[in-house]
Write a protein that binds this DNA or RNA. Structure first.
Lengths: 127, 127
DNA sequence: GCCTAGCTTGGACTTTGTCTAAGTCAATAC
DNA sequence: GTATTGACTTAGACAAAGTCCAAGCTAGGC
């Protein structure tokens, strides 16, 4: 009885994230999950998202200080480009490793594990 | 009667941010402000912080999806290094302009206004 | 088919932030 | 100096996002 139990709820949350809708908030994940499994609770969605993040299957992105968003594209390094007007988010792939831009004398003894880059601007529609 | 009125409350909020304590949350700013001006309200602290951000005097940093932090060091471009253990934040100055790392074919027609980089790692104390 | 550790549920609770109506006051005009 | 007035402040209600908990349910091992 060790290990991770595959329940209907977890399957549904995973399926929602696998869809073509990326960067959903927890509430949006819950709304879509409810349409497939009406009795699923918010707490379970939060629990499952947290587990997926811990397992490294999903990335948490805190882009605006309000709701966190969940990004299923965790297996490929990428950064985010966000429209300051409408909030649209795109995955982008900058050149080079952002971590390399931080010189040793700016690391203050930290062991770096990574860097997140958020590009901001206006999308064509908002301009 | 046009323009920006200098009130005791606004002065206190500005003074709190000018101290050596950087990257405070709104609640921390409020707590420190209360110790100088006991009747100041939370709403006024939020209002004033919002105005300072609009004026470009202070930077809002959303590092962890919880409370936003306010960074008085707005006049010098810099990025942040955060300890995954204790949450400590340091200002850092990476080499080069992060915006330059995003090639044109990755900008999707956006007009870029800037980039925020968050380096993550463990500080010497947490290791 | 039973058993049980682990999962789910609903609701209370917390944290962070916003809004509003009413009262107050800084800066200008006189 | 005083009156005026529109911007500012206040307390508290409200809202959004997320966490916690006790009670009940269930997948998977036996």
């Amino acid at each position: 009885m060790r290990g991770w139990r595959l329940t209907a709820q977890r399957r549904v949350v995973a399926e929602v994230l696998d869809g073509d809708h990326v960067h959903l908030t927890a509430d949006e994940v819950h709304a879509r999950a409810v349409s497939r499994l009406p009795e699923i609770s918010r707490a379970t969605v939060y629990n499952t998202l947290g587990e997926l993040v811990t397992l490294g299957e999903v990335l948490e992105v805190a882009t605006d200080g309000r709701a966190k968003r969940y990004d299923p594209n965790a297996h490929q390094a990428h950064q985010h480009l966000i429209c300051s007007g409408c909030g649209a988010i795109r995955d982008v792939h900058p050149l080079g490793d952002p971590v390399a831009a931080l010189p040793a004398d700016q690391r203050f003894g930290f062991t770096l594990s990574g860097a997140e880059v958020t590009y901001r601007g206006l999308c064509p529609d908002c301009r």
